[in-house]
Write a protein that binds this DNA or RNA. Structure first.
Lengths: 301, 301
DNA sequence: CAAAATACGTAACATATGATACAGCGTCCC
DNA sequence: GGGACGCTGTATCATATGTTACGTATTTTG
């Protein structure tokens, strides 16, 4: 009776990561980091391979060399040179390493939740941390109800929607306008000279909504504009920072986002996220009509 | 754009699970369930294979038939009969299916976390969760070093900086341009008609940097532009999504942000945050000169 | 208990897959 | 502007890998 080992294969003395021998260097604990570390020293083709792998990490690396090379748009040998440069003896060894890493990840979902404790030198991590905190804080003070109200106001299509922003926040207004305009008519982004938008005031009335982005340092021109719009009965939705732009006084809805980050600039990321959610909420509510509209629009392109 | 399922992975028409043809039967959505369903009807050897796979699911299934058979203590043909009984045509097909399953899991970490749907049928929270996850994921694959490299490239002021974006991402380009233009000269945002920017190509050369934002659906016009710029030796920095815009091919640096959220739209929030960090990094490096410049600018206002 | 059917492993086979040699091309440097 | 170097793709090669055929062992059934 064959009590021996079956297809006994040479029992892979599975190596972990390739030798990062020297002391004093930074700790490399995953292939992704290894790549990030060396991507700077790679030639163009291999860098494409690296980027492709990182983009859908690590799945591509588990497929065959041929598939990998195809998605990366390079030849097979380039892929092999790439893994060789990472320090692996051959492709299967590289794949094994990826699998081990995956296995470890799957077993401890905890490690997925947050980044490695962020080494001291990291100039990025503190900023990322701050940004994430900002978002949590922003949403702690922002209920679903409020967002739903605003979304409802934007959906209620008896009037028009105008959007405008300040020096650095105008792109947010544009971003929101670009999306809203797809799902509903009468969405206008106010750009250009102050005199330009002031003239649009004449088109605005009670049933219209004006979305304003204004963070420090608040711009007088925006405040003036907001006041006039308010006088005409326009409903104002204000995106501002935690210190509240003076426009808050005229606004029907105020969204106060946290903006503090360890940088010379304030961060608009939290406001950006709120804007995206509003876009999402509006789109969802318009699903029925919106779908038709979107199809029409597609056929026009 | 709109109306696609949000975590929909482009490629892989790859057969999902084997034919669970009949209606009325219980839904099988993973290979693990499929096995649990059929393990009762399997002969001894295949059952050992099944148990082995379940025990360290799904890693063993990604290895070779030989390794699988060895760990299960059966012969290779038994493994093959096992996967055949599950309904797969051959072993590679079985592996692909496992990989797809894994990829789906990895891409929506939110679902792993098993968060209670949050009070009030909140439409907001899942989106916030997804957004935060996107950021964590994005930065997991993005090292300080890479950002520093790109920042250095932007700081190295022997050339000009051009920024451009797609239909919905152009505001990001604007946002970044607005900030960079404050701390350094020769920053240009390319807007308007395609013909407008194409004419600017003539000003671009080896020492210049072109920052492009391009996410699904990728715009041909941007790709054409990128290619021409690349031919002129312009250094391209690409902000894209995890599926990589075709422009990645020409890019010197690629930043792949996660964009999947439970909404009809893709989210650019992660890219926005990266952009802010880049702005911060550049500003920091230019501190000395920058401070002077900013003071000058202040006095001009 | 005998005979048939099923299950399983051994060994040979075909091929998909990774590895290598080499030549063309672009780039950098002198 | 010319020569050397390095990078990349094509074509070829070796082999690891999945697959199949077949004979033996085991279980099932009348």
């Amino acid at each position: 009776m064959a009590s021996e080992k079956w297809d006994q294969d040479k029992q892979t003395e599975r190596n972990g990561l390739p030798s990062r021998s020297k002391g004093g260097e930074k700790m490399i604990s995953s292939i992704a980091e290894l790549i990030a570390d060396r991507i700077g020293t790679m030639p163009a083709g291999e860098r494409r391979a690296a980027q492709t792998l990182i983009a859908s990490y690590p799945m591509i690396g588990l497929k065959t060399v041929a598939e990998f090379s195809a998605t990366a748009g390079v030849s097979s040998p380039t892929i092999l040179r790439f893994v060789a440069r990472l320090g692996f003896q051959n492709y299967p060894e590289f794949q094994s390493s990826l699998q081990d890493e995956l296995a470890a990840q799957l077993q401890s979902p905890a490690t997925r939740t947050l980044n490695p404790p962020s080494p001291g030198g990291g100039t990025v991590s503190p900023m990322l941390e701050a940004t994430l905190d900002n978002m949590r804080e922003t949403f702690r003070h922002l209920s679903d109800g409020q967002l739903a109200d605003i979304a409802a106001r934007l959906v209620d299509r008896r009037g028009k929607t105008f959007l405008i922003g300040g020096r650095f926040t105008d792109p947010l207004a544009r971003y929101m306008a670009a999306h809203l305009a797809v799902v509903q008519p009468d969405v206008f982004h106010l750009a250009g000279q102050e005199s330009m938008w002031r003239d649009r005031l004449i088109d605005m009335g009670k049933r219209d909504v004006l979305v304003i982005f204004d963070i420090r340092r608040y711009q007088d021109s925006l405040a003036r504009f907001a006041e006039k719009a308010h006088q005409r009965g326009v409903q104002i939705v204000l995106f501002t920072d935690q210190w509240l732009s003076p426009i808050a006084r005229f606004a029907r809805h105020v969204i106060a986002g946290r903006t503090a980050v360890p940088s010379a600039w304030d961060s608009s990321a939290a406001l950006f996220v709120v804007a995206e959610m509003l876009i999402g909420a509006v789109t969802r509510q318009l699903e029925a009509e919106g779908a038709k509209r979107i199809r029409e629009m597609e056929s026009l392109r």
